[in-house]
């Protein structure tokens, strides 16, 4: 597996073009004033007018490899990801921009998160299903930009609007912060869609009150205040796609 990975080298000045007739060509690009000259994998040179290219991934936008797969180097990416862990499920939509600056990528996420948390109140055990709408800023760093599989580290800080649908009557919860730190891999592909997998440390604060209207004491409902950091280590899958 490792040998296979090493054998596919990056093609200098690699580019991809979609041409009429549903043709896609990949290779090393040389540009003249009016035409593209593409040296294909079989060493033949294909020349065509710039106006014939229906879609172009130019060398400043991608890293192309000898197996035909590519990674994004610069530009806007849109993404969708799903996360699952103990007592947690979530999904996020992301928009990120890669400025081709030392492997940095930044952007923002909006997400829908569901966390399950339990704690003890007086004479009761409380289970909360905390539903959150999150808006976060994120930054990714790719230390090995030009590799076929690009590892990255990620940090994300955001705001969570929290609610507790099934305990609306006797539980209050405040909005809070949500923090994420991740280590992941983005896989190159031949298509515009790039899959990634990530191990995420997720931290979200929930605080509020639980009023126990059942186990009252002398007619007074005991109130329990909770102030809890949810610390979750989770597995995340997602994909991004460019233009």
């Amino acid at each position: 597996m490792g040998a296979k990975f090493v054998s596919f080298s990056q093609i200098p000045n690699g580019a991809i073009f979609h041409l009429p007739g549903d043709n896609t060509v990949k290779g090393q690009l040389f540009v003249s004033d009016t035409a593209y000259h593409l040296t294909l994998y079989n060493k033949t040179v294909l020349s065509f007018s710039k106006y014939d290219a229906l879609k172009a991934y130019l060398p400043e936008e991608i890293y192309l490899f000898s197996n035909g797969k590519f990674n994004y180097k610069k530009g806007f990416l849109f993404g969708l990801e799903a996360t699952s862990g103990i007592n947690h499920v979530s999904s996020n939509l992301s928009v990120t921009y890669t400025p081709n600056f030392h492997g940095i990528e930044y952007g923002m996420n909006i997400g829908s998160h569901l966390n399950f948390v339990d704690f003890s109140a007086i004479t009761n055990w409380v289970w909360l299903d905390v539903s959150s709408f999150t808006v976060s800023g994120l930054i990714k760093y790719y230390p090995l930009q030009t590799s076929l599989r690009r590892p990255y580290v990620k940090a994300s800080v955001g705001h969570a609007s929290n609610s507790i649908p099934n305990f609306a009557g006797n539980t209050t919860i405040k909005n809070s912060a949500v923090l994420e730190f991740g280590l992941g891999y983005t896989f190159s592909s031949k298509s515009r869609t790039k899959w990634y997998v990530e191990l995420t440390q997720y931290n979200m604060k929930i605080n509020g009150t639980f009023t126990d209207n059942v186990n009252t004491n002398q007619g007074v409902a005991p109130i329990t205040e909770f102030d809890i950091w949810l610390n979750r280590l989770m597995l995340r899958f997602g994909f991004v796609f460019g233009k």
Partner: peptide, 20 residues
């Protein structure tokens, strides 16, 4: 191994304030 790792790293922390 992944399951054990994930399960073992889900320790909530924080405080609970009770009137008792």
């Amino acid at each position: 191994s992944a399951a054990i790792l994930l399960a073992s790293c889900n320790k909530n922390s924080g405080t609970i304030t009770h009137t008792y």
